[in-house]
Structure formats: structure tokens, C-alpha cells
């Protein structure tokens, strides 16, 4: 694991968020069901990542960062559990989570900015993964705060195209996950 980047003080997200790790059946339309539920109940999604789950092609894992100010977590859990395709939900409090996110950015370079850009990339522990005469593409896998910091640092450069995946998370080792009573 690469060390945390240092680009000045990390500004923590003001949103009180929770991370839900939702195991769902890998069927057509399931993501729409989950997203639709959040929309119609007025729960805000802060970020969302989906991929096939470990061990089994029958299931996918959706990692949802939910703005806990917009809905009591108990409601989010209860309503999510009622979706027939939702198999399992675990909730990871931010303090108990190891979170990572991937950032890719393509930046226009020229003689004038190359040095300062390389400084930023180096300080962030990002890596250059593609390059041509006029651009570099950098990658950073880091905490969401680390990605925020690099994003802000790159804002100074013109011609940046930046993509982030949204975070995935697992519980910190030794911390039990919290799973309220389920039902429908």
C-alpha cells in the first residue's frame, strides 16, 4: 500500500456519511431498483460503486456512501432490505472503514507547466500511466480525502480531465460490522 499523499491539510468532507456494502443478485435492473429506492425515498447518494462480488457470479456488491443527514440509517436499511434482490447489507461507520478510491486524470502538459505538474504528481504519490507529446495520464489509488487533495491541486492546471470511481470500503480489521435486524 502506498503511503498517504501529503498536499497540505486534508479537508474532511462536511457530509456526515455512512458506507453501505450491499450484496445484490446479479440480475438485470437491480442497480435501477436500488438507485430508484434512494431517489423516491429522498435518500442522497454521495457515491456509488458496483462490481461483481467475490466468489460468485450470481452476486454483485454495491458500495453506497449515503448522506446520513437525509435519512435515518435505520430507514435506509429497512427499505433496502425490502428489495427482493438485496441479499445482504452491512454498514460501515466511516471511522471503522478502510476506504479507497481510484482517480484517473489526463492533463495537458507543455514546457511551462511540466515541472510543477510533476511536483504535484510526486507529492501525491500518484503514478503516470500514459503519456504522449502533449498530455500525461495519472492514476491515484488513495483515500477519498487523498483523491480530493490531488483533485484540488490539479485544478490549477488548465486542460484537466478527471475521473473518480467512487469509494469502496471494507471494515477495519478487528472491528465488527454492524447489521441491524432485517426484514421486509
Amino acid at each position: 500500500m502506498s503511503p498517504e499523499p501529503f498536499l497540505g491539510d486534508v479537508e474532511h468532507s462536511p457530509v456526515r456519511h455512512h458506507i453501505l456494502s450491499v450484496l445484490v443478485e446479479n440480475k438485470a435492473g437491480v442497480l435501477a431498483r436500488v438507485a430508484g429506492l434512494f431517489a423516491r425515498r429522498g435518500f442522497n447518494i454521495y457515491s456509488l460503486a458496483v462490481a461483481p462480488a467475490e466468489s460468485h457470479e450470481r452476486f454483485s456488491r454495491i458500495t453506497i456512501v449515503v448522506d446520513a443527514e437525509t435519512a435515518p440509517l435505520e430507514q435506509v436499511f429497512g427499505q433496502l432490505h425490502k428489495l427482493v434482490n438485496v441479499v445482504d447489507i452491512s454498514d460501515i461507520a466511516p471511522d471503522d472503514a478502510v476506504e479507497r478510491e481510484l482517480l484517473l486524470a489526463t492533463i495537458a502538459t507543455d514546457v511551462d507547466n511540466r515541472t510543477s505538474l510533476l511536483d504535484v504528481i510526486g507529492a501525491a504519490n500518484a503514478s503516470i500511466i500514459d503519456v504522449d507529446a502533449h498530455h500525461v495520464t495519472v492514476m491515484l489509488a488513495a483515500t477519498p480525502e487523498g483523491c480530493d487533495a490531488l483533485e484540488r491541486a490539479l485544478e490549477a492546471h488548465p486542460g484537466v480531465e478527471l475521473h473518480r470511481t467512487g469509494r469502496v470500503a471494507v471494515p477495519r480489521l478487528g472491528v465488527p460490522t454492524h447489521e441491524p435486524a432485517r426484514s421486509r
Partner: peptide
């Protein structure tokens, strides 16, 4: 309530029998 999502949805309760 058979639907646990109804419990504490509108009114906080003292005892929940799901």
C-alpha cells in the same frame, strides 16, 4: 409490524415487535 421499515419511520417507539 411485519415490515420492520415501518418501525421508527414516523414515530419513535419504545418497543418494536417485528
Amino acid at each position: 409490524d411485519i415490515d420492520a421499515a415501518e418501525i421508527n419511520k414516523i414515530r419513535r417507539v419504545e418497543v418494536a415487535l417485528r
